[in-house]
Amino acid sequence: MALENGTKSDLVLDSKYAQIKTKLVKQLPLALRWLALMATTTAAIGMGLNKQSKTSVVAIVGTQPISQTFTAKFQQTPAFVYFVAANAMASFYNIMLVLLRPFFKGRENALCVHILDLVIMVIVATGAAATSSMAELGKDGNVHARWNPICDKFSAFCLHGGMALISSFAGTLDLFVLNIHSLVSLHRSVQGQQPVDPSV
Rank of each mutant, 00 (worst) to 15 (best):
S91D: 06
K153L: 15
M134P: 01
V81N: 04
M89T: 10
P102F: 10
V119E: 11
M38F: 15
G106P: 01
C112M: 13
G141L: 01
R107A: 07
G46C: 06
F157D: 02
T40Y: 07
Q76C: 11
D152Y: 07
M89N: 08
L118W: 03
F70Q: 13
T55L: 05
R146D: 00
V124Q: 09
V143G: 00
L118P: 00
V57H: 07
G46Y: 05
L99Q: 13
A110P: 08
A110W: 07
I45Y: 09
E136N: 06
Q52S: 14
T42H: 13
L99N: 14
F154Y: 09
F83L: 10
S53Y: 00
V122N: 14
L99H: 12
P102C: 10
T40P: 10
M121N: 12
A59C: 08
W147D: 00
F80D: 01
G161R: 06
V113W: 01
V143A: 02
M134F: 11
L100Y: 06
C158Q: 01
L159M: 12
L159E: 04
P149H: 05
E108S: 15
G46F: 02
R101Q: 14
S132A: 06
I123D: 13
T42A: 14
S56W: 06
A129W: 00
L118R: 02
V98M: 13
S133G: 02
S56A: 11
V124F: 05
V58M: 11
P78G: 04
K153V: 09
A135V: 08
A86V: 10
T131W: 03
C112N: 12
Y82L: 04
A156I: 13
I115V: 15
L100W: 07
G46A: 09
Q52W: 13
L99S: 15
A130Q: 09
A43Q: 07
E108C: 14
F74V: 14
V57S: 12
A145C: 02
L97P: 06
P149L: 03
K54P: 00
T77N: 13
F70I: 14
L137Y: 00
I66G: 10
L97W: 05
T69W: 04
A110I: 04
C151T: 06
T69G: 05
S67K: 10
G161A: 15
M38R: 08
M89L: 11
S155Y: 12
N109A: 12
V61H: 11
G62W: 07
F80T: 02
F154D: 01
L99W: 11
F154E: 00
D117Q: 11
K105V: 10
A128V: 08
G48C: 09
E136V: 02
I123S: 08
L111Y: 15
Y82C: 05
H160P: 02
T41I: 10
A128W: 03
Q76P: 07
Q75N: 11
G46Q: 08
A72Y: 00
Y93C: 02
L116E: 07
A43I: 02
L116K: 05
